[in-house]
Design a protein around this nucleic acid. Structure first.
Length: 494
RNA sequence: GGCGCGGUACCCAAGUGGUAAGGGAGAGGUCUGCAAAACCUUUAUGCGUCGGUUCGAUUCCGACCCGCGCCUCCA
């Protein structure tokens, strides 16, 4: 039951087999670090993270490389606006991007930065010029001549045959030979960041970065290249053109594209007022685990409608799973094993595996785990779960969480970091009451809570429900949920 | 205009040529000193509209309506 993935190159779901036996070499286009990351960015990165985790769970060794684009027009412009160097400017946003990714449990790939590979990029251009594929314009910029790459358009399924005869098209701004020829290297403009290289002074074009860094880290041919759906054309098309015309070998074998999300049914945009960074959502009091769960719950090739209602629903779903785990791990069970539960656990594991192998169908994997939770809870209520059933059920849950990564409750410390950040940035007014409350629940130490619980137990022993209820209410106000069960009193942070 | 994706219950959202996963929300119930948690029952003869193919279509084909994407910086 091998992994099957949609390949944008073949336009169909194909069986995924890496070029070498056990290792998968994948490259993902990362962020341009000019601002805080928004939830659309993170939809894509969560999708790639899930792919990576599925590959690891399948037993592959994964070499996952992601670039940080730390020089481009926007960065240069914003840095100038703020009166800082490009390096100072990008350092801040690279850091915040990585913090945000970690906040929603995205495992960190091997990072490569454009500005650390300038010489290699110039060398790449030089070799393309030598082959007659690239040419230098009068201003010192270099362009790729797409007429030299007849397969141009094979990824995006566009027909450029009309341009392959080298027909000259007049373009106002540049002295390109053809309108479609794209920039490999940009000559410096006054005041812009630029580097001295053997091909002249300037800076790399965006497409060039990814070709150079991916091949350097992964070889001339590698397994999979990922990115947002918008990158399919021209970015990835151009990467293919540059790379394959230079090496004469196939570049990436699989092309993985994540679809854009909608926010409240509309395209996310600043003008519509539905543009949210990850931090905006946490400031509103939403948990990182809710955000990750929602982003992961719709298969990556479908449009995901991101809504605040959905975010609340995601929070409840995560709670339900966490509750189930707590129930299993804290309950008392009679000795022995129940074959039904053993079977339930293994069938669920299989169903999740099948769902994920089917082009990462996360929705079906979730359906499988909830089916197990419901049945196991029902068995729990009738006392049908035995001691030896607990481990396999927890193992199935752990398999689920190896992919979804939402069960461990570290939301509060993460939210506290965002709160501290907002204060440090002078954004006090953006901190919601919900966030303050959530963080407050984390201020009460475990031992302080335990002593309150002990008081409750003592009061209940003498049937002093009034005192017990008062303490419970206090804890509830402090954001601690207290549950009285037949196995004793259980608590957790909301 | 060219190319592509989608329209499934109150909301989110899978899926299939043979009669609709899962989650949330709502209603009723069980349990409970009360809560909480959990479980049970219940909520689409119906899957954008209209035709066609078929023994049979939500699933295939066609037209139309609506939403969205790429074609230019964009995850």
């Amino acid at each position: 039951m091998p992994l099957r993935l949609y390949n944008s190159m073949s336009s169909q779901v194909d069986e995924f087999r890496p070029l070498s036996d056990n290792e998968v070499r994948m490259y993902a286009c990362g962020p341009t670090v000019y601002d805080y990351g928004h939830i659309g960015n993170f939809r894509t990165f969560v999708a790639v993270d899930i792919l990576r985790r599925v590959l690891v769970q399948s037993g592959y060794k994964v070499r996952h490389v992601m670039n940080i684009t730390d020089v481009d027009d926007k960065i240069i412009r914003n840095a100038a606006r703020d009166g800082v160097t490009v390096q100072q400017y990008t350092a801040k946003y690279e850091k915040t991007f990585l913090e945000d990714a970690a906040m929603i449990n995205i495992e960190e790939p091997i990072l490569v930065r454009a500005t650390e590979h300038i010489q290699e990029m110039s060398e790449f251009v030089r070799r393309l010029v030598e082959k007659g594929i690239a040419y230098r314009a009068e201003d010192g910029s270099y362009y790729f001549r797409i007429a030299k790459f007849p397969q141009y358009g094979k990824l995006s399924k566009k027909d450029f045959s009309g341009m392959l005869d080298g027909a000259r098209v007049d373009v106002d701004d540049y002295d390109k030979d053809s309108a479609r020829d794209f920039a490999l290297w940009k000559a410096p403009k006054p005041g812009e960041a630029s580097w001295e290289t053997p091909i002249g002074r300037g800076r790399p074009g965006w497409h060039l970065e990814c070709s150079v860094m991916s091949m350097e880290e992964l070889g001339e041919s590698f397994d999979l290249h990922a990115g947002g759906e918008d990158l399919l054309f021209p970015h990835h098309e151009n990467e293919i053109a540059q790379s394959e015309s230079l090496t004469g070998k196939p570049f990436a074998h699989f092309w993985f594209h994540a679809r854009f999300l909608l926010v409240e049914g509309e395209k996310m945009s600043k003008s519509l007022g539905n543009y949210f960074t990850l931090r905006d959502l946490v400031l509103k009091g939403h948990k990182p685990s809710s955000i990750r769960y929602l982003l992961a719950s719709v298969p990556y090739r479908n449009q995901l409608n991101f809504t605040f209602d959905g975010l609340k629903q995601a929070a409840v779903s995560v709670e339900r799973l966490r509750n189930f785990r707590l129930r299993l791990s804290s309950g008392n069970f009679p000795a022995g094993a129940n074959p039904d539960m053993q079977r339930l656990a293994s069938e669920t594991t299989d169903r999740m595996r099948e769902a994920l192998n089917d082009d990462l169908n996360t929705a079906q994997a979730q359906a499988a785990i909830f089916e197990m939770v419901r049945q196991a809870n029902a068995a729990f209520d009738t006392g049908a779960i035995r001691k030896d059933d607990v481990a396999p059920l927890l193992a199935a849950l752990a398999k689920f969480d190896e992919i979804f990564a939402v069960l461990d409750d570290d939301d509060v410390p993460k939210m506290k970091r965002v709160l501290d950040w907002a204060r440090a940035e002078g954004r006090e007014k953006d901190i919601s009451a919900a966030l303050r409350e959530a963080v407050q629940a984390g201020e009460l130490s475990d031992s302080a809570i335990e002593s309150k619980i002990a008081e409750m137990k003592a009061a209940r022993a003498s049937r002093d429900f009034k005192t017990s209820d008062r303490i419970r209410a206090e804890l509830t106000d402090a954001g601690i949920l207290v549950e009285i069960t037949k196995d004793g009193i259980r608590w957790r942070r909301k």
